[in-house]
Amino acid sequence: MRRLLWIAVLVAFAFIPVLSASAWAAYPEKPVTVICPWGAGGGTDRLARFLADELSKKFGQPFTVVNKTGGAGAVGHAAGAYAPPDGYTITIVTLELATMHWMGLTDLTYEAFDYVAQVNEDPAGVTVRADAPWKTLKELLDDIKANPGKYLFSGVAAGGIWDLARIGMLHAAGIPVDAVKWIPSTTGAAQALTELLGGHIHVVTCSLAEAGPYIKSGQARALAVMADERIPAFPDVPTLKELGINWSAGTWRGVGVPKGTPEEIRKKLEDAVVEIANSEAFKKFMETNGFGIKIRRGEEFRKFVEEQDKAWKTVLELGGYLKKK
């Protein structure tokens, strides 16, 4: 017993951190916190961890991922936005930044951030069962027009991105948004796809990346993708624009810093993130995770978020999710 105690004491001393005086140097001179507004193990978390690892290698300082979840993304985004604007807290910002304040979940808007770079975008798709009667999107939309209230759509919880994508698509096609019913799916696309394959719902509007395994295995079919251009993984799937419907929607992820962060630091991060996003390792990582790559640099990213913010307001209003002030 006594020997055990001695070992315990020795171990304890061995682990007391060595205090090292750090010399003054350019950014970053101490560890950087990367805030991920979503839970450990999810898609955004994996992306955050990959970026953090690569940034650590580039800058020679640890970039540590902190998961701050809650409030449907509001907690993490707020923590990132209100951190000291010194470049030592960066945030993985996601699409919800442009929707949640309209829904009254938070007061935080996109303006609380300065933008480093966008690295990912996944457009929504229109996926049906392999044996569904509709061969093209037009057939589906005509059927919906003829039978309002009959068809069930799903993909995410009410007011989530795929619900909004559906609302936007119907609106752009000139169909009342309540012509189909939205079935909220609490655990996201997986549950909706299970329901689709079981024949309990008719259409899922989640991203093609999420529906990918079932499309490839021949259990499901994609009728369209809500993007500006066809996506490389599914070259046969037409875009809505080709079909004459002016609408595109999807999720996106990028890196942001609190507003007021010194421009040199933001620029330094931007160059690093863009360099990582162009690397082979990143391409491979995104492919295995089924994410699409879309790179927008700081200023361009900012404009994009601003547009998104406006676009979603209209759609949320159509869906009745807009919180009236």
Partner: peptide
């Protein structure tokens, strides 16, 4: 927490940590 069909936060008393 947030309600499934309307997205309304129930019984959270304004505490953001309870929203989910």
């Amino acid at each position: 927490g947030i309600d499934v069909s309307t997205g309304y936060p129930r019984f959270t008393f304004g505490i953001m940590d309870l929203m989910d």
